[in-house]
Design a protein around this nucleic acid. Structure first.
Lengths: 112, 112
DNA sequence: GTTTCGTATTGACGTACATCTATGTATCAG
DNA sequence: CTGATACATAGATGTACGTCAATACGAAAC
């Protein structure tokens, strides 16, 4: 998903019927979160005191190969959930809270 | 996912590091929402004035076969997101807002 | 009982994707 | 320049799952 759509994604699921396009977009967003490795990466980055984590600190705790971690981090960055900043040889990642909040708001419950 | 776990699922993603088991559980929950057909079903049921919808009203708007709709509805029920009630030949579905709220709360953002 | 209708299940097929190994790219040290 | 380090990319493989046609199940009508 294009990060530039961050201000408009996503329509609430539970207030009005979703059309096909909005459903595809929102499903793609949830698909990024629908993986245990990516959820753990999000939580590790978010729970860091400094708010950012070097990729080198993420391989061991997840117990996956370095390419796999790199792949998941790229997916999260492409989805706008993480921000990547390169410093020399290292890549530092931080959570984009506005993006998470948008997905959260998509699950707003309307009381009947 | 077992509906009986409704009161404990899920750990917040962004406040503390997720262990493997919690990550698996939460990923399974999001996986249910990571499908456009299921999101549209949720929105159609939720936006019904009466709060419940007959399965017979859900096939045409989604443009999929009846078995496919039935499959998705079963997935949503098994995940605790929808409740099914049979009345004679018909099956009526309603949203379980507490369950949606739990997933929503799992995306709570902790401000640094 | 028989038929009809609404829904659920089964089995098959194709696609998507998580993961790995191997390799490429970029940066720093010497 | 050379080697080492950190990360990304490419290609391959196995599994998961969305979808359908066909069938089974169950309830109501006659």
């Amino acid at each position: 998903m294009d990060v530039r759509t961050i201000t408009r994604c996503c329509e609430p699921v539970l207030t009005a019927p979703l059309n096909g396009a909005d459903a595809e977009e929102l499903a793609s967003a949830f698909k990024v979160l629908a993986d245990p490795a990516r959820l753990r990466l999000m939580s590790l980055v978010a729970s860091s005191p400094s708010g950012e984590v070097c990729a080198c600190e993420l391989v061991v705790p997840l117990g996956r190969s370095q390419p796999t971690i790199s792949h998941h981090l790229t997916v999260l960055v492409d989805a706008g959930l993480l921000a990547r900043e390169r410093r020399g040889k290292w890549a530092w990642y931080s959570v984009v809270p506005e993006r998470v909040a948008l997905l959260r708001d998509a699950l707003a419950v309307s009381v009947h």
